[in-house]
Amino acid sequence: MACVATITISVSSPLRDFCGAQSEIHVGAATLRDALHEVERIEPKLHRAICDETGRVRRHVNLFVNELHMSEREGLDTVLASGDVVTILPAVSGG
């Protein structure tokens, strides 16, 4: 069983409107999925901006654990360690 780690969620500026302008949130979580559950509990509007109603991470939102995109780790099952930083970034857009 994974241990609960204290991690930092780094909120990029476009998302700060959804969480009272916080740039960082600190939560205890064993996995990235658990971290999102914590976000849902304490900042539901921010969670809705990251995930749709089914719980799926929105198509144009990227989650990084430290410097690696979650797809380069174990997705939402990525195990977190104390001091990890989860960064939430919208995908780049153009046109």
Binding site: R48, D52, E53, T54, G55, R56
Partner: peptide, 11 residues
């Protein structure tokens, strides 16, 4: 508007 979590659809 939003679907319930168990609905399976996303707005």
């Amino acid at each position: 508007p939003a679907f319930a979590k168990d609905d399976g659809r996303a707005l």
